[in-house]
Design a protein around this nucleic acid. Sequence first.
DNA 1: GTGAAAGCGCTAACAG
DNA 2: CTGTTAGCGCTTTCAC
Lengths: 374, 374
Amino acid sequence: MTLVSEDNTETLNAPAIAQQSVEPTRKPTIMDVAAASGVSYATVSRYLNGNPHVSAKAARRIAAAVKATQYTPNNAARSLVRQRTQTVAFVVHGETDSIITDPNISTIMVTANQRLGDAGYQLVTLIADTPQACERIARLASSGFADGWILNSFHTDDALFNTFRELNVPIAISEVGYGSQSPFPTVDIDNAASSCALTKHMRDNGYRRIAYICGPDFLPCSTERLAGFRTVMGDDFDPSLVVSAADWSRGSGSAAIEQLLSRLAEGSSNRPASSLLADHHIDALMCGNDCIAVGAMQYLMSHGVRIPDDLAIAGFDDSPDAISSHPQLTTVHQPIEQFGICMADMVLDQLEGRTPQRIHMLDTTVIERESTAR
Amino acid sequence: MTLVSEDNTETLNAPAIAQQSVEPTRKPTIMDVAAASGVSYATVSRYLNGNPHVSAKAARRIAAAVKATQYTPNNAARSLVRQRTQTVAFVVHGETDSIITDPNISTIMVTANQRLGDAGYQLVTLIADTPQACERIARLASSGFADGWILNSFHTDDALFNTFRELNVPIAISEVGYGSQSPFPTVDIDNAASSCALTKHMRDNGYRRIAYICGPDFLPCSTERLAGFRTVMGDDFDPSLVVSAADWSRGSGSAAIEQLLSRLAEGSSNRPASSLLADHHIDALMCGNDCIAVGAMQYLMSHGVRIPDDLAIAGFDDSPDAISSHPQLTTVHQPIEQFGICMADMVLDQLEGRTPQRIHMLDTTVIERESTAR
DNA sequence: GTGAAAGCGCTAACAG
DNA sequence: CTGTTAGCGCTTTCAC
C-alpha cells in the first residue's frame, strides 16, 4: 500500500525537539518555533494569531514545529504587548469564609465564568477576607492584573471599593443595595418592591399583625426590605414589633426573636412564647433573609410555638435553607444565575466599548411554602 | 508657629500630575515617575524594589513623584522580566457547581490563600467545570499564567491532570486517594486507616453485623474506605451487605439503602424495613461519607426505623451535615484547614527550591455522636 | 506573503 | 550611588 502525502517532505531543523532531558528545560519561545520551521518569528506570530497573510506551506511547517517544540505563547509577554490580560477578576469579599460557602456566590461565580469563558476571557476569583488581602488586591487592580472586575458583597464604606472608584476600569457590582446611587454598573433586585410584594402576599392571606426581624442595620438592602414591609403595612406598622439581627446567620435570627419576645414580656417572666404572641395578637413574622427566619423558627418551635398554626414565618432569598427547613419557608426568590450573567455582560460591554446599563434590576417572585400556609 | 522642614524644597517637574482630565488617561509608567523626580528610571526601579543603593534624597523625590503620578508598576511587564507572576492558581474541578458550594473546598481555598498571601503570592481560583474551561486552563498552565498550581478533586482519568503531568511546574494536589502512587506532592488523609479506626470503634461499641454503603466506585478513596472496613470486619465481612452509591449526595444515599433493603427482602414484598434489618441481624450501617449517611438515615427514618435504637449509622468527613442532622452523626473528622495550609506549603517549597514532601498524611479522629449511641 | 525592527514596561547586570 | 544598556517574549507596523 502506498501513502501519497501531499507535501510533507519538509524537514524540520528542530533544535528543541529532544531537549527534554536537559536540566532546566527552558520553555520554547516563538523563536524556537521560527527556527524549527525555517521562517521568521514574525510569520509564526501571524500564524498563531490567525492572520490570513501566511502561506499554506508556511502554515504547515509552523504547525509541525509548534507540535514538535510543544510551544505555547507566554502569557505575560502577550499581555504586555497587547495591554490586555484576557482575564476578569471576581472578588469575593467578606471577613470569614462564610461568604464563600454562600451558595449564591458560587452560582454567580459559575455562571459568570461561563459567560466570560465564551467571550474568551478567564474568570479568576480573588478572596478579600483580610486587610492584607484587600491591599494586595487593590494593588493588583491598579496594575492591570485583570481587564475587568466583578465585585461581590461590598459595603459602602469599603476601602477596596474606594480604590476602584478612582481606577476607571471595567467593573460590575451586585447586591450592595445602592440602587440607582451606585457609582458602578450594578445588578440587583428591587429589595423594597420585592419586600412589598411579599408583605402584600401575607396580608392577602389574612395576616394582620406582623413582626419583623431586620437584617444587619448597616446594609442598604436590609433597610430597603424593611421599608417595603413598612409601606405595605401602612397604619398597621408597629415599630415595637421590629428588631434587628446582628448578621445574616441563624444564630442572630434566634437571638433576635428572643430579644423581641423578652420585649413583649416586659418583666412578666416565664410566660410561654406562644401565649406571649397571642396576647399581642401577632400572627406572622417576616425576616430579612432565610437564615434569620430559620434561626427564629427553630427557636420558636423549641419553645412550643407551632409554625404556621400559631405563627406564620416568611424569609427572603429562597436559599437552600428555605427548602431544607421544616416547615419549608415562604420566601422571595431571586434569579441567582442572572446575577453572574448580567455582571459578566456588563463587564464585557465595557471591555468591548459599549456603554453598559447603569443598573439592571432582576425580577423576583414570591414563593409560597408551608411556613405561611393557612 | 514655624514649621521647619528638613529638605522638601525640591520641586517636582511633574508633567503627569494634572493629566486626569485627558481622555484615555494613559497609565503612568516608571518613566513618568523618573521624569517627575528627575532621576533615571533605573533608580526608580531600584527604589521600588527595595534596593538599598538609593540615596535618601532620591528616595524622597521618587516617593513624592510616585504619589503625584499615582504610579503602580505594571503587572505583565514585571512578570515578563522576572519570569514570575507571584500568583498561585487554585483549580476547582467538577461538573456542576456543587463542588464549589462544598464547604471543604472553600475552607481549603481560604486557608491556602492566607498562607500564600503571607508568602507574597496571590491565590487565584479557576473553575474547571466544562471541557472548554479545562482546555483554557490547560493552556494557561503551560503559558506561565501562575507560578504554582493547587489542584482539587481531580480524578485519575482527568485530561487536565495529564496536562499537568507533562508540565513540570510546582503543584500540590489533595484528596484524590492516590496514596503513595501520586505523581505530584499530595496531601490526603489515610482513608483506609481512618476507616479502620471508625470500624474498630463500632465493633468496640458492640456492633457486630454492619452494612456498608460505599462511595462512587471509581474513586480511590471510596475503595480505600471500604478496604479499611473490610480489614477490621475480618470474617464477619459480608459482601451481600455492601452497596455502592452513585455519587456523594444524599439522594444516592437513600437510593443505595433502598437497593440494599430490596436485596434483603428477596421478593417477600411489603416487609417493614426495621424487621428486614432485624431478620438479618443488621445492627449498624457505615457509609462512604456524611451526605450518603444522612440520605440513608432520612430514608430509613421515614420508613419507621429508629436511629440509633434499631440501627446505628456512621458517616465520614465530619461535614456540616454530620451536625445538622437529627440524630447527629458519628463520623471521621479531618482537619480541613490543614489541607489548604499543607498544599500551599508544598507549592511554596517547590517555588523556593526546597524539595516538598511527596505525600503528607493528615491525622483524623473518630467523632462519636448520637447516631451510634448505645 | 514575509522579514526587519520598533517597542509594550520593567528588571538587572554593567560601567562609571 | 546612579545612568546606560540589554533584554524578558511577543505583536505590529513598515518596507520589500
